[in-house]
């Protein structure tokens, strides 16, 4: 469904990706793991068109989408829930959701889609006419996901959905991601919380210093490698153990 091949990207003079390749098949939940600064968010930004890659290709549903405008990529059915939620604080929940449906709006389907989100996220129905900025962190994350779902994405990319949430809310978000997966949504999940992500993922990639260091099933990852020490721990002095 999504094929990324040898992707290079940089912020100004600083190179962030040195040739990332990965694949997501239809119906899969793929986790992309790694420490802070490994290039996870950069990968998602390059796929979604927010960042223009220096080299490499991104193919989605058989078409090359490398370097296309973000709005065109969304229209093709690839939605990103950005890091830090990035909801529109001055817009109401209703307006946030309406914008989410911008690329695929159909009058007779809209209410149905909305009801679907309310079923998944009951809190959004309660807060429907409140400005997004007044929502709590967990509620904002739910809104951000619901907003992305309103575009009826064929592939949903989630950038650190558990970041900054309390443990109870993290459980809730992961349960939700599972639900989405079970309903058949293809998901590419970026997480620092590797343990939780591996519980629900079909396959996983580990990114380090802008390169894919491992790919395989969660079982392979756990059996073949000592996750904590090799990938997130000392070795090259990366510090910051996240597992």
């Amino acid at each position: 469904m999504l094929t990324v091949n040898d992707l290079h990207a940089s912020y100004g003079a600083i190179k962030a990706l040195h040739g990332v390749s990965l694949e997501v098949e239809e119906g899969e939940l793929v986790a992309l793991l790694g420490t802070n600064g490994a290039g996870k968010s950069t990968t998602l930004k390059s796929i979604s068109g927010v960042l223009r890659p220096l080299a490499g290709t991104v193919r989605f549903l058989g078409d090359e989408i490398t370097g296309r405008k973000p709005e065109a990529i969304v229209k093709k059915g690839l939605s990103l829930v950005p890091e830090g939620r990035d909801i529109f604080g001055s817009l109401t929940v209703a307006e946030n959701l309406r914008l989410g449906a911008f690329s695929s709006y159909e009058r007779n389907r809209y209410q149905e889609d909305l009801e679907e989100q309310f079923a998944l996220f009951p809190i959004l129905k309660e807060r429907f006419n409140q400005p997004g900025g007044q929502l709590s962190g967990g509620e904002q994350q739910q809104l951000a996901i619901a907003r992305a779902l309103m575009s009826r994405p064929k592939l949903l990319m989630l950038d650190e959905p558990s970041l900054g949430l309390s443990p109870a809310l993290v459980d809730q978000i992961f349960a939700l991601i599972e639900t989405l997966r079970d309903r058949g949504t293809t998901i590419l999940l970026v997480e620092q919380n590797a343990e939780r992500a591996l519980e629900i993922a079909d396959r996983a990639y580990v990114l380090k210093n802008g390169l894919i260091k491992f790919s395989g099933t969660p079982q392979q990852l756990e059996s073949e490698l000592d996750l904590a020490s090799v990938y997130f721990g000392g070795e090259e002095g990366m510090g910051e153990v996240t597992v």
Binding site: S48, G49, V50, K69, P70, E71, V74, K75, S79, L80, P82, D86, F88, L99, G100, F102, S103, S104, R147, S151
Partner: peptide
């Protein structure tokens, strides 16, 4: 930037 991620053309 986020607005464009909603599919709104810049």
């Amino acid at each position: 930037s986020t607005t464009r991620l909603m599919g709104v053309p810049a």
